[in-house]
Simulated assay, not measured.
Amino acid sequence: MKKKVLITGGAGFLGSHLCDRFLAEGYHVIAMDNLLTGDISNIEHLMGNKDFEFHHHDVSKYVHVAGDLEYVLHFASPASPIDYLKMPIQTMKVGSLGTHNCLGLAKDKGARMLIASTSEVYGDPLVHPQKEDYWGNVNPVGPRGVYDEAKRFQEALTMAYHTYHGLETRIVRIFNTFGPRMRLDDGRVLPAFISQALRGEDLTAFGDGSQTRSFTYVDDLVEGIYRLLKSDYAGPVNIGNPDEITIKEFGEEIIKLTGSKSKIIYKDLPKDDPKQRKPDISLAKEVLDWEPKYTRGEGLKPTLEYFKEKVLK
């Protein structure tokens, strides 16, 4: 019998790529998703695979899987501002109740659990680059608080299960990630810029364009997550690409890459939007022997081809 892995949010951008990876590694994969922000088209190519099953379910209610289970990967959550601002209660519930249900399942099955945390736990950081021992600068009652605090609570609850129950847990702090299967309309800068450039529209940047982001290609992220899951390190680990770029520079890069005649226009920066984002990945290098292999340019090529099919069809 093949070992089983449960991936919540399995029809999402990251979850679907993880399904691919674990099937390739010889696991039986159970993807669970309520399709609130996930898309069944992300996993349609897996539906005929005897080692893959899909459960249309909301993990905030309960989680049940029959039989043995080796791993639980909790990736269910709205993850973009446009989603969690529209669905604040659901975002808090999947980060709290959903995490509690998944941890309970892992404890019952004797499974190892990995949670998808985020660089947003650092808020609008006062420390740069961001290292795992930085506690963050988060506004709990601001518009982004529903996502930031859901993830911070998720980390705290996971660590409580680790220390109190002795549960094998792993925490990955994910920085901006991109690649095929990203949603065009999720409000994040990369899909917005590429979609606008392909349509010949002006690129909409918020703030004056001086704020920074660091973009990780999805294959690098999946490799980092896989190594973390298999490691013996229980603390949070940053997985991201430290190649930092300003929003203005990134917009210019997308215009050049697409051959668009678009311009960059600037609008007011949303409240509590981070001014800087760059991971310190020293810990990942040390405990996982991991660092990104793909440059931003290398990752943008397949991403652009994916977006062309969606935007220009």
Rank of each mutant, 00 (worst) to 15 (best):
M182R: 11
E305Y: 02
G38D: 03
H17G: 15
L304D: 03
G179V: 15
L203D: 01
E252L: 12
G207E: 07
W290E: 13
E25N: 10
H56Q: 12
H55L: 15
L14N: 02
K151G: 03
E286V: 08
S231L: 09
W135N: 04
S80H: 06
A11H: 02
N34A: 06
R199C: 07
Y164D: 11
H74E: 01
Y134V: 06
V189R: 00
R213K: 13
V5L: 10
V287A: 13
D68H: 08
R213N: 15
K2W: 13
D186H: 01
N139W: 14
E291M: 04
A76T: 00
A79E: 03
F215D: 13
M87G: 00
T303K: 15
A156V: 07
F54Y: 14
E201M: 00
M87E: 01
E168A: 15
E298M: 15
E291H: 04
L36E: 14
T177I: 07
Q196L: 00
G251T: 04
A66Q: 13
E53P: 01
D272M: 02
Y71I: 13
K4A: 02
L6N: 13
L288Y: 03
D148C: 03
D268Y: 04
I174V: 09
P125D: 14
L269F: 04
G209M: 10
D273A: 14
K248S: 02
T212F: 08
A24W: 09
G235Q: 09
P302I: 00
S96V: 14
K230N: 11
K61E: 15
D208Y: 01
K3V: 11
G209K: 04
H57Y: 07
K86N: 00
G235S: 14
L85V: 01
G98E: 04
V172F: 09
D272T: 05
P302R: 10
M92R: 09
L105I: 07
T295N: 12
D268F: 08
A116P: 10
F52Y: 08
S260A: 14
I43N: 09
E305G: 08
H100A: 04
L288P: 14
Q211N: 12
G240S: 09
G142C: 14
T169P: 03
P242T: 06
P279C: 07
I247T: 03
L283S: 07
S77Q: 04
A150P: 14
H55T: 01
G136T: 02
V29W: 09
M1R: 10
I174L: 05
G9K: 06
E168Y: 15
K93L: 13
S262V: 15
A24Y: 11
V72W: 02
A205G: 00
R183I: 02
D108M: 02
I225H: 03
E223I: 13
G299Y: 02
A160I: 01
K248Y: 05
M1N: 06
S41P: 03
G48M: 04
N34D: 12
L69S: 11
G209S: 04
G123F: 05
K256V: 01
